[in-house]
């Protein structure tokens, strides 16, 4: 279920947004929930919502605390939630601190539906990718893993080890070849960096000549042959998720 929070000081627009969101999810046959707030302060008080929301849509021009400042405060509490700004003008020039908004939705009557739907498409897509789980027969038994928790895969003899981030005490090993697993996980942005290791691009901090550094601090060597492909895939991935 997709949980959405709306924040706008104009009741008229809150109504329009709620209707459009309902239209979108009913069309797709997906379950959703919407909470409306008529000021930034009201939203910030609801800490429970801030923790569980999948998407928060903030009107930029509000009386009291404006959308951008509200977003900064939200980020202090929740680094991961998708934030979208709603405004008649996409003003990027004032932001000193990068809030990492996923979209800017145009608030004009003839644009709002298209831009809102596109934003929802993007968020639903992201959620699918992040929440997706994979169930495999490991040596310790059948287990379900969140794909996003996998940092990288490593061959150890005939087995492949799953290295998770954050690390768990359990060791996930499976008697599949690295190639088979890489092919399975390719749609989730996994990439082979050498003949022995495949990384999850979401966990990559940086790529340099012949080394990949992950967000857990580990360094994985990149084979010379694969370097160009790795750099290319990393650049494309970085652009896609920026």
């Amino acid at each position: 279920m997709v949980k959405i929070a709306l924040c706008d000081d104009e009741a008229k627009f809150l109504e329009i947004e709620k209707e459009l969101i309902a239209e979108y999810f009913e069309d797709k046959g997906m379950s959703f929930s919407v909470e409306s707030y008529s000021s930034g302060e009201e939203l910030l008080k609801d800490e429970a919502m801030l923790k569980i929301a999948d998407l928060i849509i903030l009107d930029v021009e509000m009386k009291g605390i404006d959308g951008i400042s509200a977003a900064k405060k939200i980020r202090e509490q929740n680094d991961k939630v998708n934030i979208a700004f709603l405004s008649a003008h996409m003003n990027y020039s004032t932001d000193g601190y990068h809030v990492r908004a996923v979209r800017f939705i145009l608030k004009t009557m003839d644009d709002i539906k298209d831009y809102l739907f596109e934003c929802l498409d993007c968020v639903v897509n992201n959620l699918n990718l992040i929440d997706k789980e994979i169930t495999l027969d490991f040596t310790i038994g059948k287990r379900s893993l969140r794909i996003n928790d996998i940092a990288y895969l490593k061959t150890v003899g005939n087995y492949t080890t799953f290295v998770l981030s954050p690390d768990t005490k359990e060791s996930y090993m499976i008697r599949y070849t690295l190639k088979k697993l890489t092919d399975m996980l390719k749609p989730f942005d996994f990439l082979a960096v050498s003949s022995n290791e495949t990384v999850n691009l979401r966990h990559v901090e940086s790529v340099s000549r012949y080394l990949v550094v992950l967000d857990n601090g580990e360094e994985i060597p990149v084979s010379q042959k694969k370097y160009n492909d790795v750099f290319r895939a990393y650049t494309l991935f970085r652009g896609k998720t920026a």
């Binding site: 996409m90 932001d95 996923v102 939705i105 831009y115």
Partner: peptide, 8 residues
């Protein structure tokens, strides 16, 4: 439609 995402 072009959803622009930009910076300063």
């Amino acid at each position: 439609i072009i959803p622009f995402i930009a910076d300063n």
